[in-house]
Design a binder for these strands. Structure first.
Lengths: 225, 225
DNA sequence: ACTACCACACTTGTATGGTAGTATGGTAGT
DNA sequence: ACTACCATACTACCATACAAGTGTGGTAGT
């Protein structure tokens, strides 16, 4: 395997980190897999040092578990962690959208409107890949409008634990039409400065994500703790 | 300087990490100070490797800023980050205490009661050092009772950004009597399953922490971004 | 057949040398 | 006096060697 060092990362450590993280999140390296610094360093044709530093970072994020002098494994999905991640995300998102109802820059409101239009287009063209990104962007714009950049970063960090679980479900089983309507209503609530309504809408919106955790656990028992 | 390797840390990396983090949080190494791997490794009589890995971790937490091939400095306090950290902490704490009002184990309720008694004692004896810990414990017990261990960990992580700012204020300027009463009222709200009241109480409680940020910024301009 | 033991092949942890990029201070030229 | 340039002394980054702990399979002894 070869690392693509052209994409701004520059440092081999970051490159290794990104590739590994991607593979783990996409379940290309399934939970429970044993890794070793040497193995990865050979695979990528780099020394152990940058690999080791990537391992440390991934372990800190909860995607790897390092057992000194014994080995390193891709961590199993921890349902408790998934549930709590969802809990945290919900409350932070609700807090932020309530803020947005108090004051929200006109430019960000326009961005939301544009985003919604793109979503509508995406649904018609059944471009589910870009729908994922637009969904992400929609929420990001709200955080930006509230000057809550760091909070967004924390939410992203927290979401790491959700992602593998979400990946197990088929990408296509989202009811995009429903999602679009929820986004639209949130937009309207922000525009109308209706904090109570936005809070309720976001609550419902978040509930969608965490539905069939138990089902997944039964279907992929070896992936879960 | 010598590292105390006796205290469970075992690995020199963790030891270096803890000592550095402590010194930074206690402002013994003030914001803006330049560090280098070599300098610290000589100071602690260890090789550059564990120092380097500690640097990476501290940088990830936002306490250091690493400029490749140029140097590493202790990050300045970012008021925006402090404000957002407080924002996140408030909403997570409020969400959890509301949960606690719905259902809370009897044993944790007892722990809270015991903690309150110790607080009362601490105030009488003017033992402010243990008051810090009891305050911390009180909130921790609530999270435990709601089975929100991971959320607690995230809050701890977020609080890193608050700590240096809090450190600048005198430790003694807390109105412990007031804090005790707030804790007591929260305890009563949990016991009475009064979520709305607990939410309001926690909101007020959190507001205490973030008061005179601007004053601090004027008083210690070189510490802030 | 069974057990105790030990050599060995792993693992991660630590130390160190070399590389490339950056800031700085002195110097030569204008 | 001022500027452009370059040697030098840094820096963090990466590669590599060694150290120390752990699991395992084979072997000798019972």
């Amino acid at each position: 395997m070869d690392l693509n060092l052209t994409t701004q990362s520059v440092s081999t450590r970051d490159a290794v980190y990104r590739v590994l993280k991607n593979q783990i999140l996409l379940l290309e390296i399934p939970p429970g897999t044993s890794l070793s610094e040497k193995e990865i360093s050979l695979k990528f044709n780099v020394s152990r040092t940058p690999v080791r530093e990537s391992f440390a970072r991934l372990a800190h994020e909860g995607l790897l578990e390092i057992y000194p002098q014994r080995g390193t494994v891709v961590s199993l999905i921890d349902s408790e962690l998934v549930e709590e991640a969802q809990f945290m995300r919900e409350h932070l998102e609700r807090a932020v959208i309530s803020l947005a109802c108090n004051s929200f820059p006109e430019s960000n409101l326009r961005s939301l409107k544009i985003n919604l239009a793109k979503q509508k287009l995406g649904i018609e063209e059944q471009d589910y890949k870009s729908m994922f990104q637009l969904d992400e962007d929609f929420h990001h714009i709200i955080f930006e409008g509230c000057a809550k950049k760091n909070t967004w970063d924390v939410v992203q960090q927290i979401k790491v634990h959700l992602n593998r679980s979400r990946m197990l479900r088929l990408a296509a089983d989202h009811d995009w039409e429903h999602l679009y309507n929820q986004h639209l209503h949130m937009y309207e609530a922000i525009q109308a400065h209706d904090a109570a309504r936005s809070d309720l809408l976001m609550k419902k919106h978040m509930e969608l994500t965490l539905s069939d955790q138990d089902m997944l656990k039964q279907k992929f028992p070896t992936y879960y703790k």
